[in-house]
Nucleic acid binder design. Structure first.
Length: 276
DNA sequence: CGGACGGCCTGGGAGC
DNA sequence: TGCTCCCAGGCCGTCC
């Protein structure tokens, strides 16, 4: 389940490994995963183009290619985009292989096939159906306690659902949402509008902190996630609530509770995050 | 309009 | 052991 820190870590890997390399050949093993956009054929549209850069927006990876093309990639839950040697064993569920000018390969793998990649013209990025809807980047300067206050004002929705809404805050997922709410001492089911200014400030700080730590730890490898070189992250060792229901709170020892909010499992400390 | 929920997929683990 | 069932959750479409 790659969220902002995982996607950012993959971006960093690919930038250091594949930036400046040319796509010599593209092999599409699962056509529905590789969407050609306005082009006739995915592979032939990309062949011969150089990877100029790798960018990220929310949980989307955007490979900047020559000729004004962008490859928009989403890993969803189990997607991997990994730079590897050509002799590396072919993983099951490998869907797209990019042969690179240095002799190595970029392989897109996705067990559940929720993820995928799409060729988009640079001038169409701003109006792209998915990218255009994304909200503010939580690690950018635009994300302030005041912005969080605007998001929650008069909102009856539960605070966790709100910070998971990609059209409001781009890049939060279930793991970092639970961790941020724990760090801020706020119950995930709290009605958003009831948060005090002090709580909004705490939540703002906590969101930035858990995301920054996630990046510093190169992502959370709880199940499937690996970085752009196939390496596991270390942030799973720092999780305080996610995946720890019924275990003791690291702060007070109380057994962590579990409930469903907006269809997602939420783990929290009934004592430290008790308020309403 | 916004919130809730099912569908998309497969593998892993629990329970029998 | 092997079968069934449930869960994992990002995003989209549908419904109310």
């Amino acid at each position: 389940m790659p969220e902002l820190p995982e996607v950012e870590t993959v971006r960093q890997s690919l930038e250091s490994k594949a930036r400046g390399l040319t796509i010599v050949e593209v092999k599409v093993l699962t056509p529905q995963v590789a969407r050609a956009g306005v082009f006739e054929d995915f592979a032939s549209a990309l062949q011969g183009l150089k990877f100029l850069d790798f960018e990220r927006r929310g949980k989307y990876l955007i490979a900047v290619l020559e000729k004004g093309l962008r490859l928009v990639v989403h890993l969803r839950m189990t997607g991997r985009w990994v730079y590897c040697a050509p002799e590396a064993p072919l993983a099951k569920h490998t869907h797209v292989i990019f042969k690179l000018s240095d002799g190595n390969e970029l392989r897109f793998t996705d067990v559940r096939r929720f993820g995928g990649m799409e060729i988009v013209l640079a001038e169409d990025l701003d109006t792209h159906s998915a990218l255009a809807k994304l909200g503010v980047e939580p690690l950018s300067e635009s994300f302030t306690p005041e912005y969080l206050g605007e998001l929650t004002r008069n909102k009856k929705a539960k605070i966790k659902s709100l910070i998971l809404d990609q059209s409001r805050l781009a890049g939060m997922g279930n793991i970092y949402a639970d961790e941020a709410l724990f760090l801020a001492g706020i119950h995930p089911g709290r009605e958003a509008a009831t948060l005090s200014e002090e709580e909004l400030r705490r939540l703002h700080t906590a969101i930035r902190q858990v995301l920054a730590e996630g990046i510093a730890n190169r992502g959370t490898s709880f199940r499937d996630y690996v970085d752009g070189e196939g390496q596991q992250g270390q942030n799973q060792l720092s999780l305080k609530v996610y995946g720890r229901s019924n275990q003791g709170c690291v702060t007070c020892g109380t057994a962590l509770g579990k409930l469903r909010i907006g269809g997602r499992t939420s783990v929290y400390c009934p004592n430290c995050q008790g308020g309403r």
